[in-house]
Simulated assay, not measured.
Amino acid sequence: MALHKLQVDDFYDDSYKLIAIHCRLEDYRLAYLLNKHLELRLERKEQDVDFKYLESSYSIFEWDNETEYVLWNLISNVCKKEEDSLHSSGTLFGDNEKVLKTFYLISEFKKVDFFLKISEESHNFDEKSILNALKRIPQIITSYTVDPLKIKSKDHLIF
């Protein structure tokens, strides 16, 4: 009897563009500006993207443009979470200090605040026009494309 192996990597499709966005806005405010300037309809999803059993969660906005077969996702790259510090003060009733921990969705890009993931089926997407439109938004510091094949943790971009 012949043994057949199925490679799961064969089904992974890199048919999306990834744009890194640097800005200091809240996620809902950036989604509003993208909707206004790019004529999108991004809406916040009910559940955030969670990793490692609620260790970190990232807000996600989505719009499925069914007429052009394009799925738009805006996802935050930074999660700041307040946790109790683990230190011994030597007393029975010590003060519990809080520590602010920062987690990143894509750890290779720690300075990026948001990613705009554009999944397309037709491959006729003009990313230069999107980048030019993003650069015209005064609240965005900078934006640029990122090659998804060079990201080590690209599995985090599958939602």
Rank of each mutant, 00 (worst) to 15 (best):
D113Q: 08
N132R: 06
D84K: 11
F103H: 14
F11W: 08
S153T: 15
S89R: 09
L116Q: 01
Q7Y: 12
N35K: 03
S88W: 13
F61V: 02
K5Y: 14
G90N: 08
F159E: 07
E62K: 07
R136D: 15
S107R: 09
V70S: 02
H4D: 13
K80M: 12
R29Y: 07
N132H: 09
I158W: 10
Y53N: 12
S89Y: 14
I106Q: 02
I21N: 03
K128E: 14
T102R: 11
H87K: 12
N77K: 05
I151Y: 08
V49C: 06
E83G: 03
M1A: 09
L38M: 12
K52M: 11
S85Q: 12
K117H: 01
L71T: 09
L18Q: 07
D27R: 02
N35A: 03
S89F: 12
L6C: 12
F93C: 01
F115M: 04
Y58G: 00
L6G: 08
C79G: 03
T145W: 00
L134A: 00
L92S: 09
L18A: 05
L116N: 02
K36Y: 13
S57M: 05
D95Q: 14
I158E: 15
K135I: 02
S76L: 04
T102G: 04
E83K: 13
P138M: 06
C79H: 14
D13V: 07
D14H: 10
A133W: 06
F125H: 05
E62G: 00
S76H: 01
F114P: 04
S88G: 06
A2T: 10
S76T: 14
V112S: 05
Y12H: 09
F159G: 01
K101F: 04
N73F: 11
K154L: 08
E68W: 05
Y32G: 05
D147W: 04
H123W: 02
C23V: 12
S15N: 15
D95K: 15
D10F: 15
K36P: 05
E66N: 10
K135T: 07
S15W: 01
V99W: 01
G94Q: 11
H22L: 08
V99N: 08
